[in-house]
Design a protein around this nucleic acid. Structure first.
Length: 343
DNA sequence: GAACTCATAAACAATA
DNA sequence: GTATTGTTTATGAGTT
């Protein structure tokens, strides 16, 4: 309540809802970021409740979560994507360089507009399989585990007709991107083979994944079908356990704002060091040294919210710029070597 | 309109 | 015998 308003700077720009989709459609359908955000996040000293409206978590990847090659076996290569299912909408971004104003609240949104059923993820089966395999510690999975990963991360498939499993198998068999590995008989548990991502097709799969992600940023239709709500029954449980924005009463009485970036307040990002983004928080983020930032998008009613921890706040245009820059870096192979495949 | 990608369905064989 | 896995073919929708 109180903290909500105090988190919003008085000079925050006002934006129209119709622009919202373009600005916020970064991730229409995301793997569930359950347990990504610490429950203490909402009580961040600098952004008490601003995360409700527009903030993000400067989490970084490449640390303990995705170990460096020097410290891990070859099964944990640099291209670890294990953040995919548990970190919500991660974009390969630069550290957040600046703090901008927060958008202000506009008119309330009727709760009736909430999507009744989980939305189908925008990702192709190839992408889903790719994510599933990459998210496994061994970088290889049996079909059954691929099913489970998809169901766990995309609630749509929990209730979807079983035909999608056929599609998964169809993709595995047909796509050159995936290789079947015969299980060691001595270690074989269950039937079937293991599947892995063919290294030479890995960059392409990543590219597709990125494009899908990127493309749907501007697909307003998908804004109302956030996977973040898929697992909830009433659609009001924003992010479930990860959200401590549990005060939905305050939400209804203090409706969210539309999240349109302030074009006027963008600040050059190159002037900020990563360490600044990590903040002064005493708690060391294990992901703190990668070039990545984790963005959490939450859906409340028809709006999406980007959550930043601590005092990091930015507008979505900044996010976009950051992402573009990150992609440039990525292309240069400087960030997690995303497209580099196995080395 | 053609080519292409993708999703879906179905049939069938192999395997645990 | 059953369920699962893997392969193949076919079809239609959507996109380029």
């Amino acid at each position: 309540m109180e903290k909500d308003t105090q988190a919003l700077p008085p000079h925050s720009p006002l934006h129209s809802p119709q622009n919202n989709s373009e600005a916020l459609s970064l991730s229409p359908s995301l793997p569930q970021p359950a347990a990504v955000l610490p429950a203490s996040l909402p009580s961040s000293p600098t952004t008490p409740a601003s995360y409700l409206h527009f903030s993000s978590t400067p989490r970084v990847y490449g640390g303990s979560h995705c170990p460096s090659p020097s410290s891990v076996s070859d099964q944990d290569d640099l291209t670890c994507l294990s953040w995919l299912h548990q970190r919500g909408d991660l974009l390969p971004l630069q550290p957040l360089p600046r703090i901008t104003t927060l958008p202000q609240m506009l008119e309330p949104v009727p709760a009736q507009q909430l999507p009744p059923t989980p939305a189908k993820p925008p990702y192709s089966f190839s992408s889903l399989i790719f994510m599933a395999i990459e998210d496994s510690p061994e970088k290889r999975l049996p079909v059954k585990s691929i099913y489970e990963w998809i169901v766990d991360n995309f609630p749509y498939y929990r209730e979807a007709p079983g035909g999608w499993r056929n599609s998964v198998r169809h993709n595995l068999s047909l796509s050159k991107s995936f290789q079947r590995i015969h299980r060691d008989k001595s270690q074989s548990v269950g039937k079937g083979s293991l599947w892995r991502v063919c290294p030479e097709y890995r960059p392409a799969l990543l590219e597709v994944l990125k494009k899908t992600h990127y493309c749907h940023r501007t697909n307003s239709n998908l804004l109302n079908k956030p996977v973040l709500l898929e697992a909830t029954d009433n659609g009001q449980n924003i992010l479930g356990e990860t959200m401590e924005i549990s005060d939905l009463d305050s939400l209804s009485s203090n409706p969210p704002c539309s999240l349109i970036p302030d074009h006027e307040e963008l600040v050059p990002m190159e002037s900020v060091e990563l360490t600044e983004v990590a903040g002064e928080d005493s708690e060391k983020d294990p992901l703190a040294d990668s070039g990545y930032i984790e963005l959490h998008y939450y859906q409340y009613q028809q709006y999406q919210y980007l959550v930043l921890p601590g005092d990091a706040e930015l507008d979505l245009e900044t996010v976009e710029i950051l992402q573009l820059d990150a992609e440039a870096q990525e292309a240069a192979g400087s960030l997690l070597d995303l497209a580099g495949g196995n080395h």
